[in-house]
């Protein structure tokens, strides 16, 4: 099943199971959304639960917050994570804080499904990796699945969660294929997944970087370097224990993120490990990340601006002391 079909399956099953769940977004009805995730849902659930919106991002994200507080379970689709910036007040000042500021009485059980990343030559305003913005804000959960199965299990969990969840898909993942369990399938938020076990280096990644990390691990295996690839899957809450356990085993940590290096989630993972497992480290932690630049339109420049498989390979080699890395 394709990633986008797995997302659709989660939406379909949750809408079937719980009449409070509804979808809201631009062109998600008859058109089925830009990436065809909601295709067919309007036929099954009607225009009252699969609602096409005008280009009013702040408005309908805020509307989602209100509907959630009042007992519904909105799944709001924002075409690009770049456009979620138009609704930052609703996300950060309203949704994220409502539960806390109401003394724990109010809840905002809402999911914002959005999409980010590079890969299609869409330039600076349609290619960003902005998870760090949401990661930074207390009160939000942040989910970034890499595989179809994780997409289904995590979206189901996100819809059932009582907190606002920023669910960020990657534009290069929609057409990827994978096994997906039939029927009800829930992956609790906050559990990383060891996508490949290894003993020499811990390689932490999420979203599309997991695929690149697995390819890098393959290449490195041929060189006799055994890489453990940990897919965080949810950035908030973060499965710190899984990271620490792995680092205690391997003694080395590389973090691969597509987002720009400065102020990214990779920096935080590095800090957490430095604080809590410094004694286990046998080499400096390495962040393989995007350059601190706006994403260029030209495809070759775009590719150069974010880590590729070779960059991850180089980062891991540096961590094991094999050679120097250009990017780290």
């Amino acid at each position: 099943m394709k990633y986008r079909e797995a997302l659709r399956a989660a939406l379909d099953e949750e809408m079937g199971r719980d009449e409070r769940v509804f979808c809201l977004g631009e062109g998600i009805g008859e058109r089925g959304g830009s990436y065809k995730v909601t295709e067919g849902l309007i036929t099954k659930y009607g225009a009252g639960r699969v609602i096409d919106t005008p280009l009013s991002e702040a408005g309908f994200v805020g509307l989602g917050v209100g509907a959630a507080i009042a007992g519904r379970r909105p799944v709001v689709e924002i075409l690009f994570v770049d456009f979620l910036l138009l609704a930052m007040d609703q996300v950060i000042n309203q949704a994220a804080k409502y539960h806390f500021m109401s003394g724990g009485e109010g809840t905002v059980p809402m999911v914002i499904r959005t999409q980010g990343g590079t890969g299609n030559s869409l330039a600076g305003q349609h290619s960003q990796s902005l998870e760090a913005l949401y990661y930074h804000v207390p009160g939000l959960k942040v989910v970034m699945p890499a595989t179809p199965a994780d997409a289904k299990g995590l979206l189901t969990a996100a819809i059932r969660d009582e907190d606002p969840v920023i669910f960020i898909e990657h534009k290069l993942l929609y057409m990827t294929d994978g096994e997906v369990p039939d029927g009800e399938y829930v992956i609790p938020l906050g559990r990383a997944d060891i996508k490949r076990s290894g003993s020499d280096v811990t390689l932490v990644a999420w979203s599309h970087m997991v695929l690149k990390s697995l390819r890098a691990a393959e290449i490195l295996a041929a060189e006799g370097i055994s890489v453990e690839v940990i897919d965080l899957r949810t950035l908030v809450p973060m499965d710190v224990d899984s990271i620490l356990d792995s680092v205690r085993k391997t003694g080395r940590l590389v973090i691969a993120q597509e987002a720009v290096k400065r102020g990214g989630v990779a920096s935080d993972v590095a800090a957490i490990v430095a604080e809590r497992a410094f004694d286990a480290l046998r080499a400096p932690i390495i962040r393989v990340a995007g350059y601190n630049t706006t994403i260029p339109f030209n495809l070759a420049l775009e590719k150069a601006s974010v880590p590729q498989v070779d960059d991850i390979v180089a980062g891991v080699r540096t961590a094991v002391g094999a050679t120097a890395s250009a990017r780290s």
């Binding site: 330039a123 305003q125 706006t294 339109f297 030209n298």
Partner: peptide, 15 residues
Amino acid sequence: GKEDGYCRGRGGSMH
């Protein structure tokens, strides 16, 4: 996306 473009290939059609 070429160097002689108005944005030196960095912006493209939308910029």
